[in-house]
């Protein structure tokens, strides 16, 4: 695989192991706390309170003691976005509104990042199965949902490899700028991966143990 595609396959969760207070709270409690905090932040109208809340949210993020290096890539995008947002809002609505709006966004993002950084993927998948359990009555199978998400995570690398192969084939044929020469073979390969995955699951007896 060429370098252009290789960085895309390097998918790992954003979770960072650690011993901070947030790391020790359960995934469910953190999710509820995050929802409540976001609701409060969106209700605040005063620029001073909004800025204070944003500052507090950043402190919560810092308290996770996640190394700054893990945050540089997302932070760069967020900082640029916040600058653009603040300027656009200041121009359209005035500075007090701009401070309120940008502080809200910063507070929500920082808190959500703090939760994602301190919660391992397996705990989140467990939480999803637990949250979905009441929906079993209306035909949602929580185990099946967790299985689908796990397969999709595995599938990202497979699909990227399929697109990369189609891209190499396109280069080899010399049709450099045709989107069609890239996307059609990519889709055919992708569908074939899905078929093969389905056959693989059936061959291993997936689904036969379930009583429905």
């Amino acid at each position: 695989m060429t370098g252009f595609w290789a960085q895309t396959t390097a998918i790992v969760g954003v979770h960072h192991p650690g011993l901070s207070p947030l790391h020790r709270i359960g995934a469910g409690a953190k999710a509820v706390g995050l929802l409540a905090a976001v609701a409060v932040v969106l209700l605040v109208d005063s620029p001073w309170i909004a800025a204070a809340l944003a500052g507090f949210a950043v402190l919560v993020l810092v308290s996770t003691r996640v190394p700054a290096a893990a945050l540089t890539r997302p932070l760069r995008a967020v900082v640029v976005m916040l600058l653009v947002l603040t300027l656009v809002q200041a121009w359209l609505l005035g500075w007090p509104q701009a401070v309120t709006g940008s502080s809200r966004v910063l507070a929500c993002l920082a808190l959500a990042w703090a939760v994602s950084l301190t919660t391992p993927l397996t705990e989140v998948l467990d939480l999803i199965s637990r949250v979905l359990r009441p929906l079993a009555r209306v035909g949602v199978d929580p185990e099946q949902v967790a299985m689908t998400i796990a397969l999709a995570i595995r599938g990202v690398g497979l699909v990227v490899a399929a697109v990369a192969q189609a891209d190499e084939a396109r280069h080899a044929r010399g049709s450099r700028l045709s989107v069609r020469a890239l996307v059609v073979p990519s889709m055919v390969r992708t569908i074939k991966i899905a078929e093969a995955l389905g056959e693989g699951l059936l061959a291993r007896g997936y689904g036969t143990h379930r009583e429905r």
Partner: peptide, 8 residues
Amino acid sequence: IARVAVFA
């Protein structure tokens, strides 16, 4: 399930 996962 396989198709849904692969398209996701």
